[in-house]
Amino acid sequence: MTDYQQTYWEHIEEGSLWLQYCSHCQRYVFYPRRHCPYCPRENLEWRQTSGQGRVHSYTLVRVSALPEFKDLVPYIYALVDLVEGIRIPTNIIECAVDQVRVDMPVTLATIKREGRALPVFKPFQKQN
C-alpha cells in the first residue's frame, strides 16, 4: 500500500473522511495519489472534509454477482457530490431503496465491511 492510500484509510478507520488538497490549484483531489492531476505538482496536503454532500446519481443493485454482497441486496450504489467539490462512489445506508433521490442531502457515516472501515453516506436529517 502506498503512503497516501494508508493515510486515506487510517482516517476512515477513525471515522472521518480526509482528502488531498492542492494549495496551488485550490482544489481537492480524489482518489488519493502522488500528484495533483491538475498542475500536476506533488506535496498534496491532507484536509478533513465536512462529510456533507448530495446524491449525484444512484442505482439499486437487486442481484449481485459478488459473493460478499449476496446478503446485502437490495442496496444503493451511488455517486455523492461533497460540498468540497469532489464526487465519490459509495453506498447510501439507512435509506429504503424507494426513498433515495437524486440531489438528496446526505452525510458521512462509516461501516465495517470485510474487516475494515468504509466511508458511506446516510440521509441528512437536521437533528444529526
Binding site: S57, T59, A65, Y77
Partner: peptide
Amino acid sequence: PYGPMGFNSGYAMIARR
C-alpha cells in the same frame, strides 16, 4: 468495496441522472 455491477452500474447512474 461498494458492490458496483461493472459497467451496468455506471450506465444506470448515467440514465438516472
